[in-house]
Design a protein around this nucleic acid. Structure first.
Ligand code: NAD
Ligand code: NAD
Lengths: 216, 216
DNA sequence: GCTAACTTGTGAACGAATTCACAAGCCTCG
DNA sequence: CGAGGCTTGTGAATTCGTTCACAAGTTAGC
C-alpha cells in the first residue's frame, strides 16, 4: 500500500479502527492547539489507552504518514485522518423527534464544532410545530420528504418514541438519507446501503449492572 | 459447566456477549407480554440480527437453560438473564451535571422501568441548585461525598462539561462509586475496580461520516 | 415404544483483531 | 560521515470471538 492508495479500494475496515481514528483525531487537535509539532504512536497510544502497535496498524490501513525515528507530524496526521473520516466538509443533519433528547442534541454546540450542522428538526405534535429552538423552527414531519428532496440532508438523528422508530426510519430511508443515528432502544431494520448506528443508554446501564454484579 | 456454576467463577465474558444478553432480554419481555411460553434460539437470533449458534454460545457461558427439541421457557430464560445481569434489584443512580443532557436523562422514564432509580442530581451552578426536576431537587455538588456515604449510590451518570469530567470522576471514585456512565467526549482514567462506560455521540456521527465517505 | 422432527449445548474449525518483533529508515552528535 | 538511538511499518504469531456441525435429548404422532 502506498500514498496513492485510494480509500475506495481499501478493504473492509473494522468499526473499532474507525472509532479509534476518531479518538486519535481528538488528541491531535489538542496537541495542535498546544503547538506540538510531532507525536509518536506511543504517545497517542498512551492517551487512548491502547498500544503503539495498534495505533500504527490502524493508520497502516490507509497509508504511511509517519517518519521513522521521528514520529508523525501533528498537523499532517490530523489532516490525513480528517480526510480519511470525511471530516473536511460540513454534514447536513436533521433531527426527527423534538422531545427531550432531541432538544439536548439540537442545542449542543459540540456537533457544529465538528462539522455536523443541524439543518432541520421535525415533530408530529401540533403544539411543538412552529416553535423555535436555537435558530431552528420545528417543522411538521409531513414536510420531511419534500424538504429532503430539496435540502439533501446527509444524516438523520432519530429521537422518536420506540413505537414510531421503525416507521420513521423507513420514511427517512425512502427520502434518500443513507446514515442514521438512532436513540430509540429498539433493533431496527434497514437496507444494506444505509448505515444505522444506535446509542442505547439502557443497554449501557445494564452492562454496568453486569459489571457490578459479576466482578465487583 | 453445570447448573451449580457460580457466576463469580465464570471466565472473562466478552462485552459483546453482555450487550447481546441485554438485547435478548428485551425480546423475551416482549414475548412474555404477548403470552408466549417458549422460544427457540433461532427466533431470538432473527430478532437480534445474529445467529442461533451465537445465542446458544452466549447463554452457554452461564449454564444451560433450554430444553433440547423444544427451546427455552420464556419466563425462565427471562428470569435467568435478569439474574446474570444483576437486574433483579433496584440500582441507585446519581446524575452529576444538571445541564441539557442531564435533564433529558433525569426525566426519562425508560430507566426507572428497568430498575435504575435516579436518587440525586448535582450541579455547581448556584442558579440551578435548589430547583426541582421531576421529583428531584438539584443538590450542591459539595454535598456529593457526604450524601454518597449515607445513600450509597451504585452508579454515577457524568454529564458535566469535558473540562470538568476527569476531576468529577475522581471525586465520584473517591466517594466509593464503582460504575460510571460518562457523556463527556473525553478519555477518562479510573482505577481498575471502577467500570467506566462512555457514550460518545460525536464519535458515532464521525463513524457515520466515515461510512458515507468510504462506502457510499 | 418406536420413529421422525426438532432444538439444544458444545468441541472444533474458522476468521477477525490485536500484539509481537524486527528490518528499514531518519536524526543527532561527535 | 559513521555510530547510536529512536520510531515507523508490517509480516508473523497469537489471542479472541464467531460459526460450524453434530451428538444428545425432547416431543409428538402413530
Ligand atoms: N430522554 C432520554 O434521556 C432518553 C434516553 C435514552 C433513550 N431515549 C429514547 O429516545 C427517544 C426519545 O426520547 P425522549 O425522552 O426525547 O422522548 P419525548 O417523548 O420527550 O420526545 C419524543 C418526541 O417525538 C415526537 N414524535 C412522536 N412520534 C413522532 C413521529 N412519528 N415523527 C416525529 N416526531 C414524533 C413526539 O411528539 C415528541 O416530541 C425514545 O425512543 C427514548 O426511548 C431517551
Ligand atoms: N447536550 C448534548 O446533546 C450532548 C451530546 C453529547 C455530549 N454531550 C456532553 O455532555 C456533557 C454535558 O452537556 P450539556 O449539553 O448537558 O451541557 P450543559 O452546559 O447544558 O450542562 C452542563 C452542566 O454541568 C454543570 N457543571 C459544570 N461543572 C460541574 C461540576 N464540576 N460538577 C457538577 N456540575 C457541573 C453546569 O453547571 C451545567 O449545568 C458535556 O460534556 C457534553 O460535551 C452533550
Amino acid at each position: 500500500m502506498n500514498e496513492f492508495t485510494s480509500l475506495a479500494t481499501v478493504k473492509r475496515i473494522a468499526d473499532s479502527t474507525v472509532r479509534r481514528l476518531s479518538l486519535y483525531l481528538r488528541f491531535l487537535e489538542d496537541f495542535e492547539q498546544r503547538g506540538l509539532e510531532t507525536i509518536s504512536s506511543d504517545e497517542l497510544a498512551r492517551r487512548g489507552g491502547t498500544t503503539s502497535a495498534q495505533v500504527r496498524k490502524d493508520l497502516s490501513f490507509f497509508g504511511s504518514f509517519g517518519k521513522r525515528g521521528l514520529g508523525y507530524s501533528v498537523p499532517e496526521l490530523s489532516r490525513r485522518i480528517r480526510e480519511i473520516m470525511g471530516l473536511g466538509r460540513e454534514w447536513r443533519v436533521i433531527i426527527v423527534g423534538a422531545g427531550k433528547i432531541g432538544a439536548a442534541l439540537a442545542q449542543y454546540q459540540g456537533f457544529v464544532q465538528r462539522g455536523f450542522h443541524i439543518v432541520a428538526v421535525y415533530d408530529t405534535a401540533p403544539e411543538k410545530i412552529g416553535r423555535s429552538w436555537n435558530s431552528q423552527t420545528i417543522r411538521d414531519i409531513r414536510q420531511l420528504e419534500r424538504d429532503a428532496a430539496q435540502e439533501k440532508p446527509d444524516i438523520a438523528v432519530l429521537t422518536v418514541p420506540s413505537e414510531a422508530a421503525q416507521s420513521m426510519l423507513d420514511r427517512i430511508v425512502k427520502a434518500g438519507i443513507k446514515a442514521v443515528l438512532n436513540f430509540a432502544p429498539v433493533q431496527l431494520q434497514a437496507p444494506a446501503d444505509v448505515t444505522v448506528k444506535s446509542v442505547n443508554m439502557a443497554m449501557e446501564l445494564e452492562s454496568l449492572s453486569f459489571s457490578l454484579t459479576n466482578h465487583g
